[in-house]
């Protein structure tokens, strides 16, 4: 019994446990309320079902949230990812007329990279508040996307391009593999180079890190650039999935989901330590929540509200302060 309690205590210190727990609770809820939720079918050589949808639609979110984790570790934020995604998607679909697929993909990613560099420059070099700095691209980004698409929703029938967002591999949606690939690359970058150490140090104490010979500006630039690239990749996936470039609506509000995924995943908005694994499960939770709300048939207008309530609850449970005061209250009750 004691060891069980000890195990529980150790687990509760592991940040990744909270998003996983949130998913489990959500799925238990679904099991009771929407038993159909877990039904899966094998059709045309691949799997179908809500769970697969979560993985597929969640992939762009996962990719963006991974980037977001890095900038949040820097004690920053990037609210422009949705707009960057729209630019990349628009550029990709636009360029499909006349360029080979690999050029198109590179162009989309390149657009993300440039946007990331721009954000990084504003934040790291010019020292503008991250929220304000990325607000610039948030607002003008969709304008740029509009310029590219000429104000219309561009569509494409390029099958090879559509495979990126809609295709299947080994019976599973292809974007999932992209998300796993991005995770793996960033994870290796974090653990096999000194980037993780430098980012956590610079995000935790910028002055001390620069005294130790780290160049926080370079590290922060890199974090924003990676986030831009991630948004670029997500843009290609989303535009490919809907076979069109929608400058106004592609990736709308995704920055909020991504930030929540990161925070639920255990990375503090105050910077420092970051948890890529936690972010993945955070993103999966957010996506599961979205899918659940849709399956419940909640009116689209109140979806954001339902989401907000659930997220507040998760964040509260996760906050040390809240848990502590809860413990204290328990103690007092026990004492009296």
């Amino acid at each position: 019994m004691a060891s069980l309690a000890g195990l529980a205590r150790n687990l509760s210190k592991q940040k990744i446990i909270w998003p996983i727990l949130a998913i489990v609770v959500l799925f238990l809820f679904n099991l009771i309320v929407i038993p159909d939720f877990f039904r899966m079918e094998w059709k045309d050589g691949h799997l179908f079902g809500n769970l697969i949808d979560i993985l597929k639609n969640g992939s762009p979110l996962i990719i963006i949230a991974i980037g977001m984790t890095l900038v949040i570790a820097k004690e920053g934020i990037d609210i422009s990812v949705g707009s960057v995604l729209a630019i990349s998607g628009a550029l990709a679909v636009f360029m499909l007329n006349g360029y080979p697929l690999w050029v198109v993909v590179l162009a989309g990613i390149g657009a993300g990279l440039l946007c990331g560099l721009w954000n990084g420059m504003l934040v790291a070099i010019l020292g503008i508040q991250p929220m304000v700095a990325t607000l610039i691209l948030l607002t003008i980004g969709r304008g740029i996307a509009q310029l590219i698409t000429g104000g219309q929703v561009l569509t494409t029938s390029n099958k090879a391009f559509q495979f990126i967002g809609k295709g299947h591999l080994l019976g599973l949606p292809f974007p999932l593999f992209l998300a796993m690939g991005v995770f793996l690359i960033v994870y290796l970058f974090k653990t096999r180079t000194a980037f993780g150490l430098f980012l956590e140090a610079a995000g935790g104490n910028k002055t001390a890190s620069s005294y130790a010979g780290i160049r926080p500006k370079v590290i922060f630039m890199t974090a924003y650039t990676i986030t831009g690239i991630c948004a670029g990749i997500a843009g290609i996936i989303i535009s490919s999935n809907i076979a069109s470039a929608d400058a106004n609506n592609a990736g709308l509000w995704i920055e909020l989901d991504a930030i929540l995924a990161v925070v639920i995943g255990g990375t503090s908005m105050r910077g420092g330590r970051f948890y890529l694994g936690g972010t993945i499960f955070g993103a999966l939770f957010i996506q599961s929540l979205t899918t659940t709300i849709y399956s419940l048939g909640v009116e689209p207008s109140s979806i954001l509200l339902v989401k907000a309530v659930v997220v507040i609850i998760v964040c509260l449970i996760q906050s040390d302060l809240f848990r502590q005061s809860f413990k204290l209250a328990k103690k007092k009750v026990a004492a009296s």
């Binding site: 000194a194 150490l197 430098f198 956590e200 140090a201 935790g204 104490n205 002055t207 001390a208 890190s209 005294y211 130790a212 010979g213 780290i214 420092g272 330590r273």
Partner: peptide
């Protein structure tokens, strides 16, 4: 302010400058 990175471990704090 200029010495420790409080959140990191002793090991990480020690290797920081060498790694840099």
């Amino acid at each position: 302010v200029a010495g420790i990175v409080g959140e990191l471990t002793i090991r990480e704090n020690i290797v920081l400058a060498l790694q840099a």
